[in-house]
Structures are given as C-alpha cells and as structure tokens.
C-alpha cells in the first residue's frame, strides 16, 4: 500500500485536555443536579433520577451510530482512512453507551415495572442494536486487509443505522410498556417539568462532552494503529 492520507499534526491532541476538563466539570454539575437539585417525581418518587443517566446514554447510542453511518458513507465515498477511524471509534463508544443504557434501564424497571427485563418493543430493538454493533466490531476482525475490512464494516455501518429510528419510534408503532418519548416528540414540546427538563439537558450535554472526549482519544489511537499498519 503506497497511498497514505492520514492527516499529520491534527488538532485533536491539543484540544483534548480542554475537552476533558469541560466534560469532567459538566459531569459533576449534571450529577449534583440529577441527585440533589431536581425535584422528586410525584408518580415515580426518586427512582426516576435514573433517567438522568438512562436518557443521555440512549441519546449517545443514537448519536454514535449515526456518526458511524456518516463516517461509513464518507469512507465509501472518499476512501480516506480518517473516516474509518471515526467509524470504528464511534461504534466502540456507541456499544459502551448502549450497554449502559440497557443496564440503567433495567435497574429503573425493577422497582417501577416489577421486572428487570420484559420482551417489549423498545427493549428488544435496543438489545438488537447492541448486538448489531458488537457484530460490527467483530466483523472488523475477519480481515487483515485494511481497505477490505473498512469497506465491509462501512457497508454494515450504513445498513445497521436503520435500527436507530426503529428503536426510537418502536414505542409509537407497537403496544409498548415503555413510556412514550417525552423530549424528542413528533407532536409538540417536551412534556416534563422545567427543572427536570433543565437537569436532563445538562446531563445530555455532559454525556455528549464525554462522548466527544472519548472520540478524540479513540480516533487518535486508531490513526496511530493505521500508521503502524501502513508502515509495516
């Protein structure tokens, strides 16, 4: 392989410490707001506070897999290795957040629904999404040829994103135990108390900064790995 388009002297390592500080600070603020500042829910009591980690992890699962899709399209279009690095990084982090979303949701479900797990549409489609992106990561291990591996993974990444809207809209399409969307609603404004909404938005922002920090670090690792791959 003679062609290399790996960017030299990129700005990621320079902004990463600041991104880390912003992520850590906002994470502390979000956690204090979620655990102590937000009011107790009149119906669910305090256990609803788990939503302040469950909803942001769900949002980041969506975001991460949409980034995989966009980076996959960009790889297929341009064949620039940076896009493959972005795709695999976002897939790995997306799997982490999807797993955490399922675990936090399960812990919330036990005292609320009385079960850790139930076979209802939102849970099943989310579990399928988790397995699909674990599969995406495993697929990458099947070939040592960089270009072939990236192309196979990109095709998978383009197809697999179909599950993201299915997960989000499954509560509308099927009779579901899971509650309907309260923030990203097709019809109208968010349907929750303003201080709860503010806490949720701060939590979503903090988790998104954590995702951005993880991405900057993980993409750097992948670019270094590609560099070693291409020089040996």
């Amino acid at each position: 392989m003679t062609e290399t388009t790996i960017p030299r002297g990129n700005t990621l390592p320079r902004i990463r410490p600041w991104l880390g500080i912003a992520a850590a600070a906002s994470f502390v603020v979000a956690s204090v707001m979620a655990l102590f500042w937000a009011p107790t829910d009149t119906t669910q009591g305090d256990v609803y506070r788990i939503m302040y980690v469950h909803v942001p992890t769900a949002w980041l699962a969506y975001l991460a897999f949409v980034v995989v899709f966009l980076a996959s399209v960009a790889w297929l279009w341009t064949k620039r290795p940076i896009f493959d690095a972005i795709a695999v990084s976002s897939a790995e982090i997306g799997v982490l957040f999807t797993g955490l979303c399922l675990i936090a949701g399960s812990i919330w479900a036990k005292p609320t629904w009385g079960v850790w797990w139930t076979w209802e549409p939102r849970l099943v489609t989310t579990a399928i999404m988790f397995v699909m992106y674990v599969g995406y990561l495993l697929l990458r291990g099947l070939s040592t040829d960089f270009s072939r591996r990236a192309t196979r993974a990109a095709v998978f990444g383009v197809i697999a994103v179909i599950d993201v809207p299915i997960v989000h809209l499954s509560v509308l399409w099927a009779n579901s135990l899971h509650q309907l969307p309260t923030v990203l609603r097709i019809a109208g404004a968010p349907s929750l108390d303003s201080s709860m909404l503010l806490t949720l938005m701060v939590s979503v922002g903090a988790f998104t900064l954590v995702y951005a920090y993880f991405m900057s670090a993980r993409v750097s690792i992948e670019l270094a790995r590609q560099g070693r791959l291409w020089t040996t």
Partner: peptide, 30 residues
C-alpha cells in the same frame, strides 16, 4: 430518598464503566 439502592447502583455502574473505558483508552496510548 426512596429506592436509594437502585439509584446508587445505576449511577455507580455508569460512572464506573465510563471511568474504566477512560482507563482503557489511556492504556492503549491515548
């Protein structure tokens, strides 16, 4: 605070997993 055990478990697992992933990134050279 009711259901404190569930709340603590959920937050601790999420925080712990994010910290573990951060450590794994550092270990891989980030």
């Amino acid at each position: 605070m009711d259901n404190l055990g569930f709340i603590v478990a959920a937050f601790a697992i999420v925080w712990g997993a994010l910290l573990a992933y951060l450590i794994s990134l550092r270990a891989r050279g980030a």
